[in-house]
């Protein structure tokens, strides 16, 4: 899955989008619900999807690009296998969430919103995860890590690395 989108995948995307667009009427106010549906289906918004949506709603692709890039909730690159969400809401900010963010950036060598080259990790900032008493909070996939410190970042990375090795081992054995 790490190779760039090829024609087969593009066709697959197109098919999925046509199926998804059937649930919507072709009116401007459906733009954001459609973008949300695309993101739910693919985990991100492929450029092809923006073009299809533009044709469907009869809005210029440029205008849709403008709307989609305005909102933080939309992303245009596939997320990492482990999506790291660093909370920088009020409580986490006060408890040093930015230091945690810096540590992730340093360790993963990516910027906010970026994905590592091997597509293992993606990094993003979020508003509030909803458990401020555990601040500073980081959510990796579905697991919430509370009372974070830079050294715990190391621990999480190690855990993921070990889990991956285990997975590869069983994968190789079954083959």
């Amino acid at each position: 899955m790490t190779e760039p989108t090829n024609t087969i995948e593009e066709e697959k995307i197109q098919k999925e989008i046509h199926k998804l667009l059937q649930d919507f009427s072709s009116t401007r106010e459906n733009l954001i619900p459609i973008l949300q549906a695309i993101q739910t289906t693919f985990g991100f918004i492929p450029q092809e999807a923006l073009r299809e949506t533009a044709a469907f709603l009869k809005i210029s692709p440029g205008e849709i690009f403008g709307v989609a890039t305005f909102y933080n909730q939309f992303r245009f690159t596939p997320p990492g296998k482990h999506q790291v969400k660093v909370c920088l809401g009020t409580a986490c900010h006060i408890r040093g969430g930015d230091i945690i963010m810096e540590e992730w950036k340093r360790r993963l060598q990516i910027k906010e919103g970026g994905v590592t080259e091997d597509h293992e990790f993606g990094l993003e900032r979020v508003g509030c995860v909803g458990c401020c008493v555990l601040a500073p909070v980081v959510q990796v996939g579905d697991i919430v890590h509370g009372k974070m410190s830079p050294s715990v970042v190391n621990g999480i990375l190690l855990q993921c690395e070990l889990a991956k090795r285990e997975e590869d081992k069983t994968h190789n054995e079954t083959e």
């Binding site: 923006l50 073009r51 809005i59 210029s60 692709p61 440029g62 205008e63 849709i64 690009f65 403008g66 890039t69 305005f70 933080n72």
Partner: peptide
């Protein structure tokens, strides 16, 4: 509709698709 505003805040730009 070739030229549009995109992105937000300090990153806001006039740009195209």
């Amino acid at each position: 509709g070739t030229l549009n505003f995109a992105y937000r805040g300090f990153e806001m730009l006039v740009t195209t698709f």
